[in-house]
């Protein structure tokens, strides 16, 4: 295990030294999904959390719990699971706030990363995965009786971009992102050659990139 970590460290150093890139990758400023003002306010909250300010955690929660709960429900399908993971995400944000590095992305992206990793881990380790795959819906959002937090500009941008994508690409990308399926599992599930799955995912993401860039610059 330690060997693997050392290898990873060596690879990271090699990447940084030879290609001068950062890992993981950040949003270039003009394409940020959050306005820089929101990001700055969030970063200030994270700074206070590092200092042990519980009220700052409460504020961070108020700002992002709706986004994260929506995401967790979409991934996990089960309310109980989503509620537990949401709780874990913010407890981790509290205990690990000192690991947040603003050169690597916005606090919102950091929280999303934590939430998605935990949710996919849970999907992959418990039997909920089977249920989730059975109940998988295309890209429609979940109907819920409770009040939705308001849909922001950036949500509409991403939704629009996804809607423009050819359905066969969108389908594979959303199943990979929200259901934690690997490319081989996707090939099996959709009865497609593995090469086709790879091409569709990659082409789809590159197309999305173009769409999001345009729509966000237009603002």
């Amino acid at each position: 295990m330690l060997d693997e970590l050392w290898t990873e460290l060596e690879i990271s150093i090699a990447i940084a030294m030879t290609h001068r890139i950062d890992v993981p990758l950040m949003y270039p400023p003009r394409r940020q999904m959050q306005t820089s003002e929101e990001t700055r306010a969030d970063a200030a909250l994270v700074g206070r959390i590092v200092g042990g300010d519980e009220r700052a955690l409460g504020e961070l929660y108020d700002r992002h719990s709706g986004l994260l709960f929506g995401l967790l429900l979409r991934i996990l399908k089960q309310r109980g699971d989503a509620e537990e993971v949401l709780q874990e995400v913010f407890v981790q944000a509290w205990t690990r706030a000192d690991t947040y590095n603003e050169t690597l992305g916005s606090p919102a992206a950091w929280l999303i990363g934590i939430a998605r990793n935990r949710a996919i881990d849970r999907l992959r380790t418990n039997a909920a995965r089977l249920r989730a795959v059975e109940q998988t819906m295309p890209s429609a959002s979940i109907e819920t009786p409770e009040t939705s937090a308001s849909t922001s500009e950036k949500q509409r941008d991403v939704q629009r971009a996804l809607a423009v994508l050819p359905p066969e690409q969108r389908e594979l990308i959303t199943h990979a992102y929200f259901d934690g399926l690997t490319q081989s599992e996707l090939a099996e599930r959709f009865n497609l050659p593995l090469g086709t799955v790879k091409t569709r995912i990659r082409t789809g993401l590159l197309t999305l990139r173009g769409l999001l860039q345009r729509s966000l610059i237009k603002q």
């Binding site: 986004l67 709960f69 999303i112 937090a149 949500q155 996804l162 990308i173």
Partner: peptide, 11 residues
């Protein structure tokens, strides 16, 4: 990373 924003937020 931006895909998370395609989901409707839920309180």
């Amino acid at each position: 990373d931006a895909l998370a924003w395609s989901v409707e937020p839920i309180d």
